[in-house]
């Protein structure tokens, strides 16, 4: 790829120190991301969300983080001051969270939440921001955006809430989107609509996306490339449409354990975890 990479990450490590000792949540994750859709899949506790948060430097205060490189374009995310990070977050890298019920402010209207992001990064007047917010609501295909603008999060459905979240995240025109389980709290049918919308916006705005999910099926359909994480390490990297050819026993186990409508089985195979998967990977395996 001739285009410069948006994001470069080398040997990211995140650990938590507690009374009971040190827990290594992320153990040497490296990848680079261009203007493409990169998926990270794994079970809960595999370190996928921590990787996403580390990129925004939004880890809990009990966590410590190390990396050899963590660059976003020209910006060195490791050396950036907190002030610079505030510019990066939202303006350059935006994050969509799992559940709109919890990530929207319940006592602030939808419109106000969108204009806040926009004004924070763009320094425009209230009027212009308002017009822009309505335009954004329209872009995420909300019918009657002027009405929704004045509504509170509890007055809209989950699918609408997620559209609002997307509008809010895209308002400052970031170039990288970190989507952490953006559709897990939604229904199957709504889920597909939201993904389609996200896809259109990614195409038209030429964004890079880091798509974090536990849902293999979804990632397989949606992303270009997939990283499979287990116990804080990337155990396999594969092109999404070749996921069926994955070779790592963990990936195979996950694929196999899903019920399928068109391939009924009496029992679902259960993942047998091999302690060897936890062994630290050697430098060239990474």
């Amino acid at each position: 790829m001739s285009e410069p990479r948006l994001l470069q990450l080398q040997d990211l490590r995140v650990s938590f120190h507690s009374r009971d000792g040190v827990v290594d949540a992320v153990r040497g994750v490296s990848f680079s991301l261009g203007r493409e859709k990169l998926g990270i899949v794994g079970e809960s506790g595999s370190g996928k969300s921590m990787t996403g948060r580390a990129l925004m430097r939004l880890l809990p205060s009990t966590a410590t983080m190390h990396a050899k490189t963590m660059r976003f374009g020209e910006i060195d995310l490791l050396a950036a001051s907190e002030r610079q990070m505030c510019q990066v977050r939202g303006r350059h890298i935006a994050m969509i969270m799992q559940d709109p019920k919890y990530s929207l402010n319940p006592v602030v209207t939808v419109g106000k939440q969108i204009t806040e992001t926009y004004r924070r990064h763009r320094r425009t007047g209230g009027r212009a921001a308002r017009d822009y917010a309505i335009e954004m609501l329209d872009a995420v295909k909300i019918r009657d955006p002027a009405r929704v603008f004045h509504q509170y999060p509890h007055e809209i459905s989950g699918g609408m809430g997620q559209r609002v979240m997307i509008a809010m995240m895209l308002a400052a025109e970031p170039s990288l989107l970190i989507a952490d389980e953006p559709t897990s709290a939604l229904d199957v049918t709504v889920r597909f609509e939201i993904l389609q919308l996200l896809d259109e916006l990614i195409q038209s705005r030429h964004l890079g996306v880091l798509f974090i999910s536990h849902d293999l099926n979804l990632v397989r359909r949606y992303c270009d490339r997939v990283l499979i994480m287990y116990a804080g390490q990337v155990v396999e990297e594969i092109e999404a449409d070749r996921l069926n050819e994955a070779t790592h026993p963990y990936t195979r186990g996950l694929l196999d354990s899903m019920p399928r409508i068109h391939r009924p089985r009496h029992r679902l195979p259960v993942l047998q975890r091999d302690p060897a998967w936890r062994e630290p990977l050697t430098a060239d395996e990474r």
């Binding site: 199957v188 099926n217 409508i261 068109h262």
Partner: peptide
């Protein structure tokens, strides 16, 4: 719609036995 949604999200119709 429900069937399509689950197929759309990755389940292939009559998939071959995974290699």
């Amino acid at each position: 719609r429900l069937l399509e949604a689950s197929e759309e999200l990755g389940e292939d119709r009559l998939p071959p036995e995974a290699p």
